[in-house]
Simulated scan of single mutants.
Amino acid sequence: MSGERMVAGRDLERSAFRWFDFVMAAFVTILLLSNVIGAGKVAVITLPFVGEWPFGAGILFFPLSYVIGDVLTEVYGYARARRVIWAGTVALLFMAFMSWVVVKLPPAPSWTNQAAYEVIFGQVRRIVFASICAFWAGEFANAFVMARMKLWTGGRHLWSRTIGSTVIGQGVDSLIFYPLAFLGAEGWTMHLVVVVLFTQWVLKVGWEVLLTPLTYLIVGGLKRAEGVDVFDEGTDFTPFRARI
């Protein structure tokens, strides 16, 4: 497998990876939950000396997908991270389509919750489109920076790669999602879009910083368990392929 340095000194076939499928499943699960539960809600927190400050509710767990994305790229390499990103993109598209189908199904006469169901699951096409575009671009930016920085640092200073890739990836994600999804929408002024966008970006990067010790533990454990450490030397970094 080109571009992979085997920590254990042995070449591992893809079928030998014991934990890759579980990491991918966790990534896709968090991604779907973040889009179902928190994408469209603006919550507020009260900050000392500042007062109420709005933020997107998805910040509570969506950044975990970037942490897992960092783990995937660091342990398994850009090519496998790319495949997982495409799996997440397809899952988002399927979820959006099925949400539309289920909302449009005529409700039974005895069922009185259609209006509430539409509010929760009837996401407008604009938000769905913005979410998928932002996820796709942000995750690929995150994986690319992570892989390139690993080569530049010779595999040292993991914290610099996880934080640096998140600064870029989450920045791309937020810059695409909030203007595309909410600029000009009812209740969303330019000021609110900018405030929420900037707040989301800062909080997401802050999450990454706080979770750095956990990232070190997971990365170290997976590298030992899998016996592999991937350096993307000679890797084709195009996002438009799924083959490893």
Rank of each mutant, 00 (worst) to 15 (best):
S2A: 15
R5G: 10
R5T: 14
M6E: 07
G9W: 07
R14Q: 13
R14S: 14
A16S: 15
W19M: 09
F22A: 15
F22D: 09
M24G: 11
T29H: 02
S34D: 06
N35V: 03
V36Q: 04
I37Q: 10
A39S: 12
G40D: 10
I45T: 15
I45P: 00
V50E: 04
E52R: 10
E52D: 14
P54G: 10
F55D: 02
G56Y: 01
F61A: 14
V67E: 04
V67F: 10
T73N: 04
E74T: 14
V75T: 12
A81V: 07
A81H: 06
R82E: 09
R83V: 08
V84W: 02
V84E: 01
A87G: 14
V90F: 15
L92D: 04
L92H: 11
L93I: 14
A96V: 05
V101A: 14
V102Q: 10
L105G: 01
P106C: 06
W111T: 04
T112L: 11
N113L: 12
A115T: 11
A116V: 11
F121Q: 03
I127Q: 11
A130R: 02
S131G: 15
I132G: 11
A134V: 02
E139V: 09
N142Q: 11
W152N: 05
R156W: 00
L158S: 06
R161V: 09
R161C: 06
S165Q: 03
V167W: 02
G169L: 00
Q170G: 10
G171C: 08
V172P: 02
P179S: 08
L180S: 08
L180E: 03
L183E: 04
G184C: 09
G187Q: 08
V193R: 03
V193L: 07
V196Q: 06
L197A: 08
T199W: 05
V209Q: 05
L210I: 14
P213Y: 07
Y216M: 14
I218Q: 10
G220N: 12
K223T: 02
G234H: 02
D236S: 12
F237M: 11
T238Q: 11
F240Y: 12
